[in-house]
């Protein structure tokens, strides 16, 4: 469990990062918090020829508001988002809840938001949140900057739409209206483990029932997914125990989970049903 030989560079600005990535192509790998990459290298599952350490690129570490959007710099540490006041309104509470589920404290202090999204673990909190909220993911390359919708970004396990010469520089999330409510529920065997299944929901209850329901799931396949049928069940209906059960059933019907030693396909589908209902109940009771 020692990594193969690799080169290491630590550029100080984005332009330089992109320049190096362009120059080395497939050989390069961006090192942010290193909480997944370094263990993968020790297991020799990842064998980058060159590590491009962006921890010195301070310009990538920010949380900013721009109109009705929140911009999260790629180098933002998980722990910065644990404070619900870091981002206004229900979005801040949602991010704080999700952040608290990320690994253990030492991991949260070092690991980064952008690193987690770029790593694309199908059970990762930030990947699910990105899909839940239709995040825009900003990639910067030598040919400039492009915006990738979250649902297009995640391709399969550990695989994204990022090109080898691109740096994930920012994730943009929509500010949620004050009337929005969220539920975020994970199931894991131990505190701090990756979720076997996670379910997250955002609902806004108006006079004509639920508006803009969002349901996203993690741990059910190669990427986090939206449970569209569950959203359809919820839209326009008044919240009730029966409605939530029906939506949870629909969510379970939306997925065809892959089984592994942590949970069979059948058990994961069962968990989707249980956790989605719980996430909805939590959203409905959120103050």
């Amino acid at each position: 469990m020692k990594p193969p030989r690799f080169e290491y560079r630590a550029p100080s600005d984005v332009e330089e990062v992109v320049g190096i990535l362009t120059e080395v192509g497939d050989e390069g790998k961006v090192l942010a918090g290193g909480q997944s990459l370094v263990p993968s290298m020790n297991f020799r599952l990842a064998r980058p020829g060159l590590l491009v350490d962006i921890n010195g690129v301070k310009a990538l570490d920010y949380i900013q508001r721009s109109g009705d959007r929140i911009l999260i710099g790629t180098l933002t540490r998980h722990s910065c988002l644990e404070n619900a006041a870091a981002v206004p309104g229900p979005l801040g509470r949602l991010l704080a809840t999700a952040a608290h589920h990320v690994g253990h404290m030492p991991i949260r202090v070092r690991g980064t938001f952008g690193g987690s999204v770029a790593h694309a673990d199908p059970a990762a909190e930030w990947c699910m949140v990105s899909v839940l909220l239709d995040a825009e993911i900003i990639a910067v390359g030598s040919r400039g900057r492009r915006t990738i919708p979250a649902e297009d970004f995640f391709r399969t396990v550990f695989t994204t739409a990022l090109e080898p010469y691109e740096l994930l520089s920012e994730v943009i999330l929509p500010v949620l209206p004050d009337s929005a409510r969220f539920g975020f529920v994970e199931f894991s065997r131990r505190a701090g483990d990756f979720a076997i299944v996670a379910s997250s929901v955002v609902i806004d209850v108006g006079s004509n029932g639920i508006i803009n329901p969002r349901v996203a799931l993690a741990g059910v396949g190669g990427t986090p997914v939206r449970a569209r049928s569950a959203e359809a069940v919820l839209a326009g209906s008044a919240p009730s125990a029966e409605l939530f059960r029906a939506a949870a059933d629909a969510a379970a019907g939306d997925v065809e989970p892959m089984g592994d030693i942590h949970g069979s396909s059948e058990y994961r589908r069962h968990l989707v049903r249980v956790l989605t209902r719980r996430a909805l109940e939590r959203a409905a009771s959120e103050a």
């Binding site: 065997r189 131990r190 505190a191 701090g192 483990d193 030693i261 942590h262």
Partner: peptide
């Protein structure tokens, strides 16, 4: 130790 699960202080 991600697959084989000794309990932690939380468990």
């Amino acid at each position: 130790l991600m697959d084989y699960l000794p309990p932690t202080i939380a468990e």
